[in-house]
Design a protein around this nucleic acid. Sequence first.
DNA 1: TCAAATGTTTGATC
DNA 2: GGATCAAACATTTG
Length: 263
Amino acid sequence: MPELPEVETVVRSVAPHALGRTILDVELFSIRVTRGGLRKTAAALRGLVIRDIRRRGKQIFFDLDRGVLYIHLGMTGKLLWDGLPGKHTRAAFHLDTGTLLYDDVRQFGRVEFFPEMPDSLERVGPDALQVGFEEFYARLKKHSGLIKPLLLNQTFICGIGNIYADEALFAARIHPRASVRRISEKRAKELHDSILAILHAAIEHRGSSISDYVDTAGQRGGFQVLHCVYGRAGESCTRCGALIRRIVLGQRSTHYCPRCQRP
DNA sequence: TCAAATGTTTGATC
DNA sequence: GGATCAAACATTTG
């Protein structure tokens, strides 16, 4: 569920509760989500102060006195402040001000402690909101293949997922199957501009709630009603009236307007 | 019963 | 070294 705008919204909504607070106790329930060992991880976190909370792409980092708490929401992860623990609660962080729960139905997410930042987490490209056009274009030119799968490749730039890849390509009028090598500098500029515009607009609306995404306060996002193509297969294009098409590209559903986004 | 779901990793193949 | 594709992970929902 969570792509860059949703993760940004989660970070913004958890920060006021957790910044500068002390982790009094931690309960960890899932060896899938917490791979470094449940007891060991809980013990390492106990007593540490949260110095900073930040995001890179879809990754969340709680910088601590010593080391870092890494959280990735995967497909169905949620961070909830003072929520009720349930069947899918995978972690509970008891702070001196309240409790932060990590819920995750499918358990594709991660809650892990690292004494220092591991290389594996650094293997991502620049954040989609931070990368300037020059670097974006330079990185684009090092790749081939199709544009949509490249946008989903987090080592190219990080933060974009299936919703915002489709929306950005629609805004830039680029077909999802367009060959990366055949994208001109001008078109690349339009794509870069579109990515920034879509992500900023989505953040303003606190993300997209497609099924059950909610922020830390349990509030849904509002950007889903502004989607132009994602989840709108068979409906008419807001720009030209043609019917939005759904195909599968790189094992992901892909939505586009066959008239606005010519091959 | 089957398909699909906002993500990532791994392994096979070209 | 790439790119591509399928599968896997686990669960719910329509």
